[in-house]
Design a protein around this nucleic acid. Structure first.
Lengths: 151, 151
DNA sequence: TTGGATGCAAAAGTTTTGCACGGTT
DNA sequence: AACCGTGCAAAACTTTTGCATCCAA
C-alpha cells in the first residue's frame, strides 16, 4: 500500500517531522479501520520503531488538533479509537459477521441536518453514522450453520 | 415528574428490589439525557441515598443485560453514558461547547436503510448516529468571547 | 435461611502529566 | 542554539473485582 508522506503538512502546521510521528501516521494510513493507541503501539513494536505509549497519545492530541486524525468512541469498547482523516465525508457499513468494513459514498443526512438545525437552534457542524448488518457471505454462512444445527 | 416503579420488572427478571437499585433507575428515568456513573452517584448523594460507585457500575451491568438500560459511548467523552431503555430508537445531538446531550426522537434513516440493503445485499440490523454542533447558548458565548478578544 | 446485593478497598486498565534529555530545524 | 518532541515514571481517572457483611425474598 502506498502511504503518503506528511512532511509538508507537518511543516505547514508547525509540527516537527520526527521518526515517531511519521511512523504513527503511517500506521494510521495503512489501517482501513479506526485503531487504538495500544494497537498502534504494538504495530510499531513489530516494526522495530521505538516509541512510548505517551508519545502516541500526545501525537494523537496534536494530530487531532491539526485535523489530520479523527478521534472516535465506539459503543462497547473501553478504549478510544483513532483514524486518519481522509478529508472526505464518509460513512461505513460494518459486517457484524466478518467485521468487513464497506465505505458508503453518499450521505443521506444533509437535508435532515438543516431541518434539525431549525428545530433545535443548534449550529450543526458534523455527524457520525455507522451502519451495521450482515454481508451476503455471512448471511449464507449463518444459514449453513443453522442448517447443520438442526440436522 | 412521574417515575415508574420497576418492582414487577425486577421480580420477573430475577433481580432483587433494593433501595439502591430502585434509586439508580429512578435517576435514570428522571434524566432526559444519557448520564455517567459519576453523575448518578452525585445525584444520589444529594438525595441522601447512600450508595457506592461500584454498586452503580454493577447495577448498570445487570440492568443492561436485562435491557432495562442502554450503554453508550459518545465521541469526545472519556466516560461511558447510560440511559433508561425507553424502547424507542433514538439519536443524540451533542453540543461541543457545553457537552449537553439532546435526544432526538425521529430518525431519518429508515427508508435509506432499505435502499442501502438493496444496493449492497447486506441485511441491515442497526445503526448508530450522533450529530454534533453548538447549542444556542454556546453560540452566544462564542460571540461574546470573540467580541472581548477584539476589544 | 439463603443467595443475591452492597460497601469498602484494592486492582486493573486507560489516558495524562512533570521533568529531564534528545533530536529537528 | 533554541525549542519542540520523546522517554520514563508517576499520577489521574474510570471501571472492575475480591471479600466480608447485609438484606430482600
Amino acid at each position: 500500500m502506498q502511504t503518503k508522506d506528511y512532511k509538508d503538512e507537518f511543516k505547514q502546521k508547525g509540527l516537527k517531522n520526527t521518526k515517531q510521528r511519521a511512523a504513527i501516521l503511517e500506521i494510521l494510513q495503512e489501517s482501513d479501520r479506526p485503531i487504538t493507541a495500544e494497537q498502534v503501539y504494538n504495530e510499531l513494536k513489530e516494526k522495530n520503531v521505538p516509541v512510548n505509549l505517551s508519545t502516541i497519545y500526545r501525537n494523537f492530541l496534536f494530530l487531532c488538533e491539526k485535523e489530520l486524525v479523527n478521534k472516535l468512541a465506539l459503543t462497547g469498547e473501553s478504549s478510544t479509537f483513532y483514524e486518519i482523516n481522509r478529508m472526505v465525508h464518509r460513512h461505513y457499513l460494518v459486517c457484524l459477521g466478518c467485521k468487513k468494513v464497506l465505505a458508503i459514498d453518499d450521505c443521506p443526512l444533509e437535508s435532515y441536518e438543516e431541518l434539525l438545525a431549525e428545530e433545535t437552534n443548534f449550529v450543526i457542524t458534523g455527524h457520525k453514522l455507522d451502519i451495521f448488518g450482515y454481508c451476503a457471505d455471512c448471511q449464507k454462512k449463518d444459514l449453513n450453520e443453522q442448517h447443520n444445527k438442526n440436522s
